[in-house]
Structure formats: structure tokens, C-alpha cells
């Protein structure tokens, strides 16, 4: 597979990101499976999730494209705001109170009937694909939440067993199991049980 000059070139030069993400992913995966220390496992988990984020973000890249925020000439407000200020400069209607950008919005609401135009195919090439970014925002949040819960679990385990080494925890659990006595409901002596 790697013997071919062409393939290697194809992988390393044209798809470098994808190779890096695979390497990161493997580091994380190995740590999650093989490490004995619970915290190290979680570090592996973080690397693993980060690798996937790198992969998704790589999908969204477009050659020569900018970030997915409209430039001034495409901005649904920027363009019109300029335009409107010329038309009715004295028009200072105060409409909305909760808006974040008062100047633009008050003009906007005054002229609510205008329609920002749809971009042409040519123009869409200039912006990176927003979808993978959104997806990864979600994945990051999920990753943080999982990590938090996992850390809480680690603390709970540490509190109970005094160690975060997996084999030591297992040994403690086995010792606990061996020491467990089944509650004596078997006693031949009659015993009132009311649960």
C-alpha cells in the first residue's frame, strides 16, 4: 500500500490533514484502551475527540475562501445601512429596545420590505463551508460534557477505593466481592421479614 510512490505522495502532500488526524486519533484510541491510569484514559479521550474535530473542520476548508461571515458587500445590513443613511438621515425612529446593533436595526425596521439578495454560485465559492464548523461546535460541547462527567466519576472512584489505577480498582472490587455475605434470609429459624 505504501510502496507506491504515487500513493504516498497522494496521502502526505495532498491530504496531509487527513493523515495527521488519523495519527492523533490513533494516539487517543490507544491511550483509551491500553492505559491503566483513569486520568490518562481521559486524556486519550480528549485527544481522540480533538482528532475528529480536526477531521470535520478539514472537510469544511475551501481553497482561497474566507471565514463564513459575509463581507461588507454581501452583508444583509452593512450594505443597506449605508444606503439608508443617505436617504433619510433625519429619520431617527426608535423601534426596538432589545436589539444588539441599534443603529442598523432601527433603519432596518423602518424599511422592513427590502430583501437582501441571494449570492450567486460564483460568490458562494468565496466562503468556507459553515456546516462542519457548526457540527464541531456541538461536538466540542459534547466532548466537554463527557469529560466533566468522566472526571466526576474518577473522583467518585478515588473516594471509594483510594486509587485511580484501573487494576488496583479491579483488585479492590474483587476483594469487596469476596467479602460480601449474602444476607441471611436462609436461616432456618423463622424470622419475620417486612422489608
Amino acid at each position: 500500500m505504501f510502496g507506491e510512490e504515487g500513493l504516498l505522495n497522494e496521502l502526505l502532500v495532498e491530504r496531509f490533514n487527513y493523515c495527521v488526524y488519523v495519527v492523533l486519533l490513533l494516539i487517543g484510541l490507544y491511550a483509551m484502551i491500553a492505559k491503566n491510569n483513569l486520568i490518562k484514559k481521559l486524556i486519550g479521550m480528549s485527544i481522540f475527540q480533538t482528532a475528529i474535530i480536526l477531521f470535520y473542520v478539514s472537510i469544511g476548508v475551501k481553497e482561497g475562501a474566507t471565514i463564513p461571515i459575509y463581507l461588507a458587500e454581501h452583508d444583509p445590513h452593512g450594505h443597506h445601512a449605508e444606503h439608508i443613511v443617505h436617504l433619510d438621515e433625519a429619520n431617527t425612529i426608535d423601534v426596538s429596545e432589545e436589539n444588539a446593533t441599534p443603529l442598523r436595526l432601527s433603519h432596518e425596521q423602518d424599511h422592513g420590505h427590502h430583501a437582501p439578495r441571494s449570492l450567486t454560485d460564483e460568490e458562494t465559492l468565496g466562503y468556507a463551508n459553515p456546516l462542519p464548523h457548526v457540527l464541531m461546535l456541538t461536538a466540542i460541547v459534547v466532548g466537554v460534557a463527557t469529560l466533566g462527567v468522566a472526571l466526576a466519576l474518577t473522583q467518585r472512584i478515588y473516594r471509594a477505593y483510594g486509587t485511580i489505577e484501573e487494576d488496583a480498582v479491579l483488585a479492590a472490587i474483587q476483594a469487596e466481592d469476596a467479602a460480601t455475605v449474602i444476607p441471611d434470609v436462609l436461616a432456618t429459624k423463622p424470622k419475620a421479614k417486612k422489608g
Binding site: P68, I69, Y70, H74, D75, P76, H77, G78, E108, A115, P116, R117, S118, L119, T120, D121, E123, T124, Y127, N129, P130, L131, H133, V134, L137
Partner: peptide, 22 residues
């Protein structure tokens, strides 16, 4: 993807497409 880039402004008037999609 094209719709997000081309029409976010028309649909929602939000300049930041990521915010609009999100």
C-alpha cells in the same frame, strides 16, 4: 452548503452564517 452561504442573508439577515446555522 450552497444554500447556507447564498441565502442565510435572505432567510435570516444574519451576516455570520455559522451563527445562523447554529
Amino acid at each position: 452548503s450552497k444554500h447556507f452561504i447564498a441565502d442565510t442573508g435572505v432567510d435570516t439577515e444574519v451576516p455570520n452564517m455559522v451563527t445562523a446555522v447554529l
